[in-house]
Design a protein around this nucleic acid. Structure first.
Lengths: 149, 149
DNA sequence: TTACTAATGAAAATGGTTATCATTATCATT
DNA sequence: AATGATAATGATAACCATTTTCATTAGTAA
C-alpha cells in the first residue's frame, strides 16, 4: 500500500488508484528535478528498491504523469524519449541543448522573459490565423559541446 | 546512369557517387518544397517510377541529404522522422505546429525576423556560457487544430 | 472483510530504423 | 568504349524502444 504524497491528489484527478509503482516513479523524478531520464534508466534506478516494477508499468505511468502535467517528455537525439519532473517555478523553465556528437544534454534557462513574450506573440498569431489552440512548445538547440568541438 | 542536376555538385561534396536513387529522392523532395514526408511515404511515392529502390537506400540517402544540408529532418509527434527540402530563401524559414489529436502538421513562418534575433541572442549566450557550438535549432508548437478542438 | 475492477507484469507483438553481406553500378583510368 | 576498383545498393535479418495482450494482483468503496 502506497503512502501519502504531496502530489497524490493532483495525480488522482487523472487516474483512480494510487499505487506503489506510481508513487515510486513520481518520487524518483521529483527527487532529481530537471534531471532527464529514459524509461530504462528509471527502471534501472528503481530496480534495487522495487525489483518487481516492470518496464511496461514505467511506460504506462510516464504517460499518465505527462498527461497529468507533472512531468515533461521530450525526444533525445537518438530516438528515445526522455522525461523530467516539471517544476512549477517559472524560473526553472528551461530548454535543452543537445550535443549531436556525444549526446550530452545541457539545460539552459536564459532569456526566459523574452522567450515567454516571443512565445505568447506566436501563440496569439497562430490562434487567430489557423484557429489553432496551442498547448505547449518545444525549443531545442543542437550542436557541439566543448569536448566534441 | 543518373543525369545532371542542380544540386549534384553540392551533394558530391559529401559523397563520391551520383546515383539514380539519390537523384530520385532529392528530386522528389525538391518537387514539393516544405512538404513533409516520412521514409515510407518517400518509398511509396517513388515505387511506381523506380520499383527497384529499397527502403534501406531511402534511409541512407536521407541521412546523406541531411548531412549535406539539403533537407531537414524533424521528428513528428508519433515518433517517426519526417523530412523536407530545405529552401535557401530566408523567407521560407518556418517551424511546425502539430495537432496532438490528428497529427496534422501546419507550417508557420510569422515573426521570422524577431525569431532570428531571439535565436541569435541565445546562440551567442550559449556559446559564451557553455562553450557550445550551436549548429541548429528546433522550434515546435503543439496543440489542437481547428477540427480537433 | 468482501467484491469490484483498475493496475500490474511477463511475454509477445509492433514498427521504425540500422547492420550485414552478396551483388550491382559509378566513374577515373586505360 | 572497355576495364576495374570499390562505393552504393537492396533483400534480409537484427535491433530496440514502445505497445499490446491477458492472466494475475492489489487498491478502494462498501
Amino acid at each position: 500500500m502506497p503512502g501519502p504524497h504531496k502530489w497524490r491528489h493532483r495525480f488522482q484527478a487523472h487516474v483512480t488508484r494510487w499505487t506503489v509503482p506510481r508513487e515510486a516513479i513520481l518520487n524518483l523524478l521529483m527527487s532529481r528535478p530537471s534531471k532527464h531520464m529514459s524509461a530504462k534508466e528509471i527502471y534501472a534506478s528503481l530496480y534495487r528498491m522495487y525489483p518487481g516494477i516492470g518496464l511496461t508499468t514505467i511506460y504506462r505511468t510516464l504517460d499518465l504523469l505527462v498527461r497529468a502535467g507533472l512531468i515533461n517528455r521530450f525526444t533525445s537525439g537518438d530516438g528515445q524519449n526522455m522525461y523530467e519532473f516539471k517544476s512549477e517555478e517559472k524560473k526553472e523553465h528551461h530548454h535543452h541543448l543537445t550535443c549531436i556528437q556525444c549526446g550530452k544534454i545541457i539545460d539552459y534557462s536564459d532569456f526566459v522573459e523574452e522567450e515567454l513574450e516571443f512565445i505568447k506573440k506566436i501563440e496569439e498569431s497562430l490562434a487567430r490565423k489557423h484557429n489553432f489552440k496551442v498547448l505547449g512548445h518545444n525549443i531545442e538547440f543542437y550542436g557541439l559541446c566543448d569536448k566534441c568541438k
